[in-house]
Computed example of a mutant assay.
Amino acid sequence: MTIWEMLAVFAAGIGAGTINTIVGSGTLITFPVLLATGLPPVTATVSNALGLIPGSVSGAIGYRAELAGQRPRVLRLAVAAAIGGLCGAVLLTVLPPTAFETIVPVLVALALVLVVLQPRITRAVQRRRDRDGRTATPGDRGGPLLFAGLLLASVYGGYFTAAQGIVYLSLMGILLDDTLQRLNAAKNVLAAVVNSVAALFFVFAAHFDWTAVALIAVGSTIGGQLGARIGRRLPPQVLRVLIVVIGSAAILQLLTR
């Protein structure tokens, strides 16, 4: 890499770490930049996954206040994230690079619809709970449906990672009775689990570029802290609009690249 390419990758890492912590889809910044430096698609994907681990951890730390009381929920869902992330990483090494990309725009679009409809669906679920005499608490775990949904989303996350945070937020927003900020905090931990498990597999089974990994790692760590400071101040309505805007941009980029 030239010095200018290295600076571009570093800047992309900061941007990706920031956006991943707030919403997700940071890979849509780093991946094109890595391709522009001449890295093959699979090598770029693997290098990106390795480099984003510190950013995911940094973002999770930045949201530690919102993680209070979520340990049982997060530990349970982390099992799904770990299994799915490993499966996705394995698929990346054995399937053609375009295998999943054909369904990614549809998946992201569905997630965005769920994010938009989440307040209405949540109210409908709450009315049903009231009629049935049941109550929900912020510690609710979401049941088998959420576990299965996050498992599948994590398979995709281990394969490509773009917009997986949006899918996580849409699933948890529908199936859990909690604030969007607390769900975002849980999302950051789950993303860190997926990236870490996938990266551990890649270290032994795939080729990657150490320079790209190091630059994205440092940049995403900085971005993770920036994202936590910005994201934690956003009202739920603003955060939801931001999710839709970034997700729509993700769909457009995936369809046109």
Rank of each mutant, 00 (worst) to 15 (best):
R131W: 14
D140F: 02
S154E: 08
V74I: 15
G219H: 04
G51W: 05
A81Q: 05
W4K: 11
A60C: 04
P32G: 07
V213D: 11
F147N: 00
S170N: 02
R131L: 15
V113R: 00
D140Q: 09
A111I: 01
G247H: 04
V189G: 08
V203M: 08
A206S: 13
L95W: 11
G149R: 00
D209F: 00
V155W: 04
L146T: 11
N195A: 10
T256C: 10
V113S: 06
L112C: 04
G55L: 06
V245D: 01
S25N: 12
L39Y: 00
R71S: 06
V104S: 13
R232S: 15
L215D: 12
L152F: 09
T45F: 03
G139A: 14
A78Y: 09
R71H: 06
L7Q: 03
F31T: 05
F100K: 01
F160A: 10
W4M: 14
V79A: 14
L112G: 04
R182S: 08
G62Y: 03
A153P: 07
V46A: 03
R257N: 14
V33C: 11
A49T: 15
L114G: 12
R134V: 09
I166K: 02
V90D: 01
L255W: 15
A99T: 15
I3V: 15
L175S: 00
G88V: 09
G13E: 12
S47I: 06
I166F: 03
V155L: 05
A109I: 10
L151Y: 08
P236C: 11
L169H: 05
L190Q: 04
A163E: 03
Q253S: 15
R240P: 13
A78I: 11
Q164K: 05
T179W: 04
A212E: 05
V90K: 03
I166S: 05
G142Q: 00
M1F: 09
G231S: 11
T137E: 12
C87T: 14
G139T: 14
P72W: 06
R131I: 12
A199V: 00
T179K: 07
T43A: 08
A36S: 15
V189D: 11
I29N: 12
F208Q: 02
L169V: 07
A68Y: 08
P138V: 11
L234M: 14
L107V: 13
A199H: 02
F147E: 09
I230Y: 04
G84E: 05
L254P: 04
